[in-house]
Simulated assay, not measured.
Amino acid sequence: MPEGHSVHRIARQFDRNYVGRVVAASSPQGRFTAGAAVIDGREVASARAIGKQMFLGFDGDEWLRVHLGMYGAWDFAGEIEVDPTIASANGRMGQTNQRGTDIDAVFAPVFDSAGENSLSSIGAPRRARVHVRMSEQTQGLGEVGDGAHQWPPPVVGQVRLRLMTDTTCADLRGPTTCELQTPDEMQATIAKLGPDPLVDDPTAGEERFTATVRRKPTPIGLLLMDQTVVSGIGNVYRAELLYRALLDPHTPGRLVPEDLARQIWRDWSRLLVIGVETGQMMTMDDLDPEAYRRAMAHRDDRHWVYHRAGLPCRVCGTEIVLEEMGARKLYWCPSCQK
């Protein structure tokens, strides 16, 4: 399931390529025909992400709410505006698939003196005709197709919603939620979500998160996945945040020390920004430039415990444990996380 950084990146792409432009909306699959008819021919007024939810606002006070869920993805085709911080160190647009262009040449990464993507490049968009997929996972989603140079692109597979401008096309496949909301309904949806470090006031978000966690008897490993407690954290960030805090996942929230709860919020705030800037869930610190590039290219080199079941802990050598918590796989070190 897409974690918060991916959804924020997708919203940025919509902000850059759709806001202020009139769209042609359709539902090739037929499951969103009525909704597409409502927004067809309207101008996109805003794009925003909160946790794992994305909202597109249209003139006339209609809001499109999309939750990608486990299998959803947006495919962008045409002339896509990006900036170098949307390109990750291996030349890919985050965790995406591309067809029809030399993507390494188009999205050449920009590094600072530490080997990381340059923050100063934000707001310097490039234009290129490409076909990209934006979602959390690429394995199992299949190829996008060979229509990158056709306009409009051919419909491939089960497209729930197609949004087109004169130059850009976005196809939505497999979402858990795709619905229109009134402004009141949109606000009601947001009100149910926990704080998001990229949306909420940092101090207010920290206070709300800390207070919620410390009054709950629920294990912290479940609380971090509860989108009413904190927005955007998924399976990868849960495991990594808990390891970085050296915290046993089974610790009841109310027994988590206040300073440690605050540390987790601040760490999540930092990791989320890194994820948005690089397109990768980079959770290891103090890597030299070569190790950083290696980690950006290979997931196995960028996490402390996630996906490392049975392997030795990078710090103490204890075998990393895999168990199920909240119907999802949880990875942790029983020695470091006491």
Rank of each mutant, 00 (worst) to 15 (best):
P2D: 08
P2G: 13
P2R: 11
V7T: 15
R9M: 07
A11C: 06
V19G: 08
V19Q: 08
R21T: 02
V22W: 02
P28T: 03
G30C: 10
R31I: 07
R31D: 13
F32H: 14
F32R: 10
F32S: 14
V44R: 08
S46W: 14
R48S: 10
I50A: 09
I50V: 15
G51R: 07
K52Q: 01
M54I: 13
D59N: 08
R65W: 14
G69P: 15
A77C: 06
E79D: 11
P84C: 01
A87I: 13
S88N: 15
Q98N: 12
R99I: 02
D102A: 12
D102G: 04
D104F: 13
P109V: 01
D112N: 14
S113L: 08
E116K: 10
S120K: 02
S120W: 01
I122L: 10
A124V: 06
A124R: 13
A124I: 00
R126T: 02
R133T: 08
E136F: 15
Q137L: 12
T138V: 15
G142K: 03
G142D: 05
A148R: 05
W151A: 02
P152K: 12
V155E: 11
T165R: 12
D166W: 05
D166S: 11
A170T: 06
L172S: 12
R173C: 05
T177C: 05
C178L: 09
C178R: 02
L180V: 09
P183R: 05
A188S: 15
L193M: 15
L193V: 00
P197K: 10
L198C: 12
L198M: 14
T203E: 15
G205D: 12
E206N: 03
T210C: 13
R214T: 11
T218M: 14
T218A: 09
L223K: 00
Q227H: 08
S231C: 02
S231R: 04
N235E: 11
R238V: 01
L241A: 13
L246M: 08
L247W: 00
P249I: 02
P252A: 11
L255S: 10
L255W: 04
R262K: 15
R262D: 10
Q263F: 15
W268R: 01
W268E: 01
L272F: 00
L272E: 00
E277W: 09
G279I: 10
T283F: 07
D285M: 07
D285Q: 11
Y292P: 01
R293I: 13
R293C: 09
R294H: 06
M296W: 13
A297I: 07
R299K: 06
D301H: 14
D301P: 03
H303Q: 12
H303W: 08
H303C: 05
W304I: 10
Y306N: 07
L311N: 05
G317W: 06
T318D: 07
T318K: 05
V321E: 08
E323P: 01
E324W: 03
W332C: 00
P334G: 04
C336G: 12
